[in-house]
């Protein structure tokens, strides 16, 4: 592999690190914030399952993102990743749970504008629509699960301590599922722009199975996410777990589960094909925002409890972050593309 290719890939790895630091924090944020799972355990499980999700099921959303802007030159992909990674880093630094999804979409639009490529407004509308649907859906799912779970617990009369142990185990399982879904849904943000220009070749492992070039790309992206989880996600975990609403361990579990379900729904090619086979409208395979899913879940539980305990100022701050992030990323991306084109004489589009 050429050194320049590796250098450009670093942009994607930087974005992967940002995703680990911010989005992955959402998955275990409520569990760590409520002190039900310690950070180290959360980080280990999160890393393993993000990588598995990315490598095994990451292809679906990548296709959709590719439709939005088929970035066909490594410097262009590099610019988009660095812009997205940098803006997510800025938000992470201020403890705001934003999403690499919003950032990378902003960056791709920036690339489209800069290079004069056409924007597929159909895809863009679908992506924007899912950003609205995603938190609402997560909120509704969390309300449904919470009500059902409360009834079940009241009827089963489980001892407080046993309930605590079950909740811990459930949080770990839901977190693992969430991390897998995040890897599957969001790896497109990190490595999607490199798919068309992957520097890897397929590896045949003893004629047993083939690790495709895309899977290799997703594997190193997954590893970058894992590094982000370990090095920088703690602060966001506590914001998600404590600042927005004082959560009980049970609520924490419900929120992680509803978040994971939403992410899985928008990443599962299987469910989408199944719905199509039943002549039902297919779920668009779109990289949704894990932050929006988590915040939607938290606010859903808050509503169920009367809405008084939700810190709306924090919710407002997070929402503003969601609107501002794609715009900032778009501007930063265009700025980097400008520098690469006119100062380094690199082709950002073919």
């Amino acid at each position: 592999m050429e050194l320049t290719i590796l250098l450009f890939l670093l942009g994607g790895l930087f974005l992967g690190w940002s995703l680990g630091a911010n989005d992955a924090a959402n998955v275990f944020g409520t569990a760590v914030g409520t002190r039900m799972v310690n950070f180290r355990t959360a980080a280990i499980i999160c890393s393993i399952f993000v990588i598995l999700g990315a490598v095994i099921s990451g292809a679906g959303t990548t296709e959709t993102l590719g439709k939005l802007g088929a970035i066909n030159a490594l410097p262009g992909a590099f610019a988009c990743c660095v812009a997205a990674g940098f803006s997510v880093y800025l938000m992470t630094k201020s403890g705001l749970p934003v999403s690499t999804t919003q950032a990378i979409v902003g960056a791709i639009i920036g690339w489209n504008i800069f290079t004069g490529s056409s924007i597929d407004f159909g895809v863009l509308t679908t992506i924007f629509a899912t950003w609205i649907i995603c938190p609402i859906l997560a909120g509704l799912i969390s309300i449904g699960i919470y009500i059902g779970l409360k009834k079940f617990i009241a009827a089963s009369k489980i001892h407080l301590l046993r309930l605590d142990a079950y909740t811990r185990a459930a949080l770990l399982l839901a977190g693992a599922f969430g991390a897998y879904s995040l890897g599957a849904n969001n790896i497109a943000n990190v490595m999607g722009v490199f798919v068309n220009i992957s520097p890897f070749t397929d590896i045949n492992v003893s004629n047993f199975f083939i690790i495709t070039s895309v899977q290799q790309l997703f594997l190193i992206g997954g590893l970058a996410i894992a590094v982000g989880v370990f090095t920088y996600s703690k602060k966001v975990m506590f914001t998600v777990g404590n600042d927005l609403l004082k959560l009980s361990p049970l609520s924490a579990f419900v929120i992680v589960l509803s978040h994971s379900i939403v992410l899985f729904l928008f990443a599962s090619q299987g469910i989408s094909s199944f719905l199509t086979s039943l002549n039902l409208p297919a779920i668009p395979l779109v990289p949704v925002s894990s932050s929006q899913a988590i915040v939607g879940g938290v606010i859903g539980i808050g509503f169920l409890k009367g809405g008084k305990e939700v810190k709306w100022s924090v919710a407002g701050k997070i929402s503003i972050g969601w609107v501002v992030l794609p715009i900032i990323t778009m501007i930063i991306a265009m700025f980097i593309l400008y520098i690469l084109t006119y100062m380094f004489n690199l082709n950002v589009v073919f």
């Binding site: 355990t41 280990i44 499980i45 001892h159 301590l161 046993r162 605590d164 142990a165 811990r168 185990a169 770990l172």
Partner: peptide
Amino acid sequence: LKTSKISLFSDTKKLEKDI
């Protein structure tokens, strides 16, 4: 992790008994 989970459940049972 596995060991700590098993120990968590056995600790829980013991604590329930203690209470």
